[in-house]
Design a protein around this nucleic acid. Sequence first.
DNA 1: ACAAAAGTGTTCTCGATACACCCATGC
DNA 2: GCATGGGTGTATCGAGAACACTTTTGT
Lengths: 223, 223
Amino acid sequence: MAPYCYEYPHPAVTTDIALFTLRDDQLSILLIRRRADPFQGSWALPGGFVDPDECLEDCALRELAEETGITGVYLEQLYTFGKPGRDPRERIISVAYYALAPYEALAPVAGSDAAEVAWFTLDALPALAFDHADVIQLAQQRLRAKLDYSTVAFGLVESTFTLGELQKVYEIIRGEALDKRNFRKHILSLGVLAETGEERCNGKHRPAKLYRLAHPGAVQYIK
Amino acid sequence: MAPYCYEYPHPAVTTDIALFTLRDDQLSILLIRRRADPFQGSWALPGGFVDPDECLEDCALRELAEETGITGVYLEQLYTFGKPGRDPRERIISVAYYALAPYEALAPVAGSDAAEVAWFTLDALPALAFDHADVIQLAQQRLRAKLDYSTVAFGLVESTFTLGELQKVYEIIRGEALDKRNFRKHILSLGVLAETGEERCNGKHRPAKLYRLAHPGAVQYIK
DNA sequence: ACAAAAGTGTTCTCGATACACCCATGC
DNA sequence: GCATGGGTGTATCGAGAACACTTTTGT
């Protein structure tokens, strides 16, 4: 019944994922309601135990898929939380990741360990299991900081997007309105965007040019 | 003989520490020569297994002290490495830290698992055990990046220092000479320094004013 | 006296900011 | 025709970069 034995005590290792998206002009995070103890019935970040032959990032992606059905997000390691006592069962060290995806691409469904899955805005979080409130706070700080010197923001828009949509991302994460002309001048001067040649009409107004990343793939450092 | 048993496989968790200092106008890192297998006789970062009731940061400080005799460094979590197979014995997940200290404060002595302790400059590293070369490279990148937007650099000078010494730190990590007047203007404009009122004479030339951090303690974000 | 680092201001350039109007579409 | 977001240029300000000489000490 307990066949995995070691000469020295081993902690358990999990990954937890803070998946952010923009929904209704608000930065939101995906939480699951725990089906099992500890913290049964509490809201928590998706996550779970690392398999023996799986790297940490794969574990994060797998747990996110298993518990919420979501795949194809941008994922980045955030911090490792390992204070003794953060889990009442045993010593658990959690490698936290944060993830980004455009809301339209997501259709979360509760799976396996999750009794329920839901989006929460960051100013209206429920009581959270474990130290997940700390994880979310750190993730939000990191996201805000990286806006200024990387292309993380593009993780929150679809693969083609208008400058208006992109500006919205910056405004919401920074929590302040930006000047449209200055924003466009700045973002275009980075040289990471390319026009697709297409347009998109988002409402009863003039259609907007669509852009894409000139070199899609990894998040780049800018400036 | 193997009394620690679990229902599911548990990886081992270690911390590894990349301790940087400035020595001879070169950025150097402290390595130990491994006394035991695996990689017996190879150079490696100091580090070791997390104790059951110890937080990760305490583990890093303890391992550094046990293996090198060094205490009192600035320490910051870097990244967690967890690819299966990175240790030939068993699955080991390593939480890597980087540390900074002024060279004068350090007198490393080989202890416990270390057959030898030595400083290496970053452009003349020996073959390294495990994936420690990756850890060092990442640590160096992080250090360079944080120079620009934080007060990490102060971790490499003593608690009182001259502007010339501080400039040296920036120059060596950035790998380029800086203009003295611009550097002083910039660093003083940050408002994080205070004059001690004392002077220090480092050679056959005019003595330099000594400064200290106005609010010592945590590394601050600047700019 | 001379070698060596400390200390000190001004000019220029470029990126960041502030700011207002016409355009294309849906209703 | 009117409401809505898309799209555009110019003037100002401030931070960063370039640049050279005097001061103080040890030998």
